[in-house]
């Protein structure tokens, strides 16, 4: 009897493998790729200025003792338009937000902030996705919480909702 069971073992393992692969196929596609830089110092980056009088975002402006948000977005991105109102409200509550616009241009961004508000302290265009890659960001919108020493505390992936806004404010308070 014992020998009989062992003979069936490869078949059982094969069926288990197939069942696993089948379940894997049924799983919804899309894998959230979190940045590995959370907990580390923010990477060096610079951006190209967009609006006259508004400085471009750059890594050198962090580490000034003031925690703030870093929002990676684009004028062509629909969820970014959806979260803009929430970001403007965060700004009204005293939250500092620096913006990085990826694959964007000055005209489109000028129109975007005219229509959706400009919640940004600093705003710049990311040339060739260099800043986005340096952050390990895989899409827009994403929002990073940076503490006063320039350390990345948290990465929020997707549009910032009202609940997310409260969470981000709590983190910034805590980082102070």
């Amino acid at each position: 009897m014992k020998r009989g069971l062992i003979v069936w073992l490869p078949l059982a393992l094969g069926l288990a493998l197939m069942a696993g692969l089948y379940l894997g196929l049924r799983k919804p596609e899309g894998h959230v790729i979190a940045s590995r830089l959370v907990g580390q110092t923010l990477p060096e980056f610079t951006t190209r200025p967009v609006l006259p009088g508004q400085p471009p975002s750059a890594s050198a402006d962090f580490r000034d003792g003031r925690p703030r948000l870093l929002n990676i977005f684009a004028s062509w991105c629909v969820p970014c338009r959806d979260e803009a109102e929430m970001l403007v409200r965060l700004k009204a509550q005293g939250v500092e937000i620096d913006g990085i616009a990826v694959h964007d241009d000055v005209d489109a961004l000028t129109t975007f902030v005219a229509a959706n508000g400009n919640p940004y302290r600093h705003l710049g265009i990311d040339e060739a996705g260099r800043a986005q890659m340096a952050f390990g960001s895989s899409g827009v919108p994403e929002t990073f919480v940076i503490d006063g020493r320039g350390r990345i505390l948290y990465q929020h992936i997707g549009a910032v909702t009202e609940d997310d806004g409260r969470k981000l404010i709590a983190m910034l308070e805590h980082a102070r």
Partner: peptide
């Protein structure tokens, strides 16, 4: 460099 940012998955 890429794995350090995006993880093994990349």
């Amino acid at each position: 460099w890429l794995v350090g940012r995006y993880g093994d998955w990349i």
